[in-house]
Amino acid sequence: MTVRRFHAEIGTALVTAGVGLAAVIGASELGFGWEESGPQPGYFPFYVGLVLIGASLWNLMRAFVKHRDAMVQERASGEIEEPFLPRENLGRIGTFLAAMTGFVIATLTLGVYVASAGYIAWSAWRQGGYPLWKSLTIGIVFTVVQYVIFETIFKIPLLKGPIEPLLGIY
């Protein structure tokens, strides 16, 4: 599948309009009028939300106009509208995003140290083509350095999971 720029434009404009709508609804619950002592708490987000909706609709319209022109040109010259994400790139981004999401989930369940050692080792092994032992070493060394900087030097506790207490680290 190839994502066209047109699809991305439409999607983004709809989402930003949605954000604007959410703000308008949230703000109208707070009151968006102008009292004697100045604006009510919802005044500012309400109107900013309206502007956001307006600008998003404008972008939506422009995307359609551009797309129509591009389609006309495509029929005339056979030149295809600028692709946003060719299939090959989509796959690469997908893998990277999935790995990153996996890292976040692992951080929340296993703690950041286990997650980062695993994530870095996995990337070096699967994507960098390094031998497994090298990849693991890289991951573990990075994690130890991270531990020393945050917990030892700057005394900032990071998220920990079920494994650290077994090693006597809290």
Binding site: M100, F103, V112, Y119, I120, A124, I138, F142
Partner: peptide
């Protein structure tokens, strides 16, 4: 493939 994930970790 090495520095990329490290930056990801540092960012998070």
């Amino acid at each position: 493939s090495i520095i990329g994930p490290m930056i990801v970790v540092i960012c998070f």
